[in-house]
Nucleic acid binder design. Structure first.
Length: 646
RNA sequence: GCCGACAUAGCUCAGUCGGUAGAGCAACGGUUUCGUAAACCGUAGGUCCCCGGUUCAAGUCCGGGUGUCGGCUCCA
């Protein structure tokens, strides 16, 4: 008689069953045949199990079906196996590596000399879906190190052998293999009972990826794909991707005439008038916020002798990213454009003696920075070589850190919430390439972390991701297609004040070393604007919109009053434009709508007579037309909406 | 930087087998003066990204470069 175990279900009930019963049998006999048919895998406490696995101990059991996110992730991993199997069948000699599921689907990395073409992808996709129709069972098997190595050596899978050796070197006793049909891979599992459960596979694109993410290792070909339980879910997802593309800041930037790029200046944006208005609306808002929160705004040179970079440590750790300038006289690269503002702020700080009574001293700067980014990483406004940060450096006493980090978190929250952006925080610790002793890093990391925990903000840990001079808290916001971008950052730095021998006179009349905080909220204007364009789909709120209103005349005789309205609004500091062309009203409305101007002010006989306007808000439908309004109430309304929300 | 794809009028895009480049919108001129998402007629607009090669002939094929895009590495 087998030993009895107790399995607890999510509803709190529990069942006594003999040990060794398979998950599938347990579900069928103790929960129901319906769930047994729908089940994909189960979790016993923390352990994920195939349906064919035995239950050997008591615990809490959760069964996952196609209704859950976990189920979807599972079939995507299944899909990666299926794809890899047909790739090896269709393209003999291709070596396999790894293939996990991702947020949106899955990928699998292959090693093969010849590139996969889009036609190859079509063939692979068709064959993969054929494997689904065959409904091949996934079969699990445990093997020893020797068996595993023998198998992959026979198959000639060099990359697999490398991973197998690693796994056993880390102390594993056995390796699990999963096969479907005659194809086998090792994998932690679990997998669905059979390929038929996958639904539908769609391959998306192929891209290069380095073996183990290391650019010194061989380059692999990564095929991206996705999978869904139902074709209609795939179609819905594809449609959603199309919609997201319409919000792409590069597309909207062109359509809304905000910015452009030219091959003569790769990675540096040309800002049109409209784009510049938006840029300055953001800059002025931040400027005001800083001034009201104890910051001094400063400006420092853009170009420096390398003596500064040697002192700051940039010359040693950051030179590859700097634009060096060849001196005609010395024929040396003695100067560089600044890639960061910090060193120049320290020079400014040093120009005067400072008292403990002044601290914290907060310098805010929106200067232009240049970083020589690798060509392959440039992308629209999100990754550029020339950009402006809403940068600040805060000099303070160690005892003020917690308070200041808390103030900063609140400032950040206030700003992001004003835009309706949701964000996540990451705490990043010492990187391999760094300056400063381990002791100072210990102090900086624990200090910043303690301050972060006092704010009550949820955060994720990113070991090794800190700046070369100190640990940091990064704030990420997602773009329209779900990619995360780092915007704000708070970085704690004990090292640089040392290097620059910064000081302040304490209460004891002796010289002390301040601590430094680097921080940005927008991050860079360029990246922030990219995110905002996608976030609002170009429909900016009145306070941000490049032009807040456009006046359109019904006929030429309405031009004098239209011009009067134009001048009146301009004199109130509103950003307004005038369309007095001889187009029909419908065409002018359309033009204004396409440019997503928040208010279109129609001026015709009625408006001339009453000395007013007929505003139409951006958007479709009958409610867009607000009807006739005297000028003053309209000005009151638009000025209210033009107010900076932070 | 690495892998792959792409580059035609201001914009969006056609261009077959290698045979001397086309549409819509925008622009410009004229007509129209109109009430909430595109008036009509006409005109002009091109180093087919750049350099080289193959060919009687290259937007088209080949090589190199530049830029852009999708990823990787890196990053605000």
């Amino acid at each position: 008689m087998a030993e009895q175990i107790e399995i607890t279900l999510p509803d709190g009930s529990s069942k006594q069953v003999p040990a060794g019963i398979t998950v599938a049998d347990f579900v069928k006999t103790n929960i129901g045949a319906g769930l047994a048919r729908a089940a994909l895998f189960a979790r016993l406490d923390g352990d994920e199990l195939d349906l064919s696995r035995p239950l050997n101990r008591s615990g809490k059991l959760t069964v996952f079906t196609n209704k859950s996110r976990e189920g979807l992730d599972l079939i995507r991993h299944d899909a990666a196996h299926v794809m890899a199997s047909v790739v090896q069948r269709l393209f003999p000699g291709t070596q396999v590596t790894i293939g996990p599921s991702t947020e949106d689907g899955f990928y699998y990395d292959f090693y093969r000399k010849e590139p996969f073409t889009p036609e190859d992808l079509q063939k692979i996709e068709a064959a993969a879906n054929e494997e689904i129709r065959k409904d091949l069972p996934f079969v699990r098997k445990e093997v020893s190190r020797d068996e595993a190595l023998q198998l992959f050596e026979k198959l000639g899978e060099k990359f697999k052998i490398e991973i197998v050796e690693d796994i056993f070197a880390k102390g594993a006793k056995t390796l699990t293999l999963y096969s479907h049909g005659d194809w086998v891979d090792f994998c932690l599992g679990p997998h669905a009972p059979s390929t038929g459960r996958i639904g539908v596979i769609k391959l998306l694109n192929v891209a290069g990826a380095y073996w183990r993410g290391d650019h010194t290792k061989p380059q692999l070909q990564r095929i991206y794909g996705t999978a869904f339980f139902e074709k209609k879910d795939l179609d819905a997802w594809l449609k959603q991707q199309e919609e997201a593309k319409k919000r792409d800041h590069r597309k909207l930037g062109k359509e809304l005439d905000l910015f452009a790029f030219h091959p003569a200046a790769p990675g540096a944006a040309f800002w049109t008038h409209r784009g510049t208005l938006l840029f300055h609306a953001l800059g002025n808002a931040m400027r005001g916020l800083c001034l009201r929160n104890g910051y001094q705004e400063v400006k420092t040179p853009l170009m420096y002798n390398k003596m500064l970079w040697e002192r700051s440590g940039h010359w040693g750790k950051y030179r590859e990213n700097m634009f060096l300038i060849l001196d005609n006289e010395t024929k040396e690269h003695d100067f560089s454009l600044k890639p960061m503002n910090c060193p120049s702020h320290h020079l400014l700080y040093q120009m005067k003696r400072h008292s403990y009574r002044e601290l914290p001293i907060r310098y805010h700067t929106q200067d232009v920075l240049h970083r020589n980014e690798a060509t392959g990483v440039l992308s629209g406004l999100t990754r550029v070589r020339q950009f402006q940060q809403d940068d600040a450096h805060i000099y303070l006493m160690e005892s003020q850190i917690t308070d200041e980090v808390k103030r900063l978190s609140e400032l950040l929250k206030k700003v992001y919430e004003a835009f309706g952006l949701s964000y996540t925080a990451r705490f990043a610790t010492r990187p391999v390439q760094r300056i400063g002793s381990d002791e100072t890093w210990d102090r900086a990391e624990s200090g910043l972390r303690a301050a972060l925990e006092k704010t009550g903000l949820a955060y994720e840990l990113k070991p090794g991701d800190g700046a070369f001079y100190g640990p940091k808290i990064d704030f990420d916001v997602s773009d329209s297609i779900g990619r995360k971008w780092q915007l704000g950052t708070i970085q704690l730095d004990y090292e640089v004040p040392e290097r620059f021998e910064l000081g302040y006179i304490g209460e004891d009349n002796k010289e002390h070393r301040p601590v430094l905080i680097h921080r940005a909220i927008y991050g860079s204007f360029e990246r922030f604007i990219a995110i905002l364009i996608e976030h609002y789909a170009g429909n900016f709120p009145v306070w941000l919109a490049p032009f807040q209103a456009r006046i359109v005349t019904v006929a030429d005789r309405h031009q004098p009053w239209a011009r009067e309205v134009y001048e009146k609004l301009q004199s109130r500091g509103l950003r307004v434009e005038l369309d007095e062309s001889s187009e029909k009203l419908g065409a002018k409305i359309r033009d204004a709508q396409l440019m997503k101007v928040p208010y279109t002010l129609v001026v015709g006989d009625k408006e001339v007579e009453g000395k007013g306007v007929s505003p139409r808000v951006h958007g479709e439908g009958k409610q867009a037309d607000l009807g006739y309004l005297p000028l003053d109430p309209f000005i009151e309304r638009i000025e209210r909406e033009a107010a900076i929300p932070f």
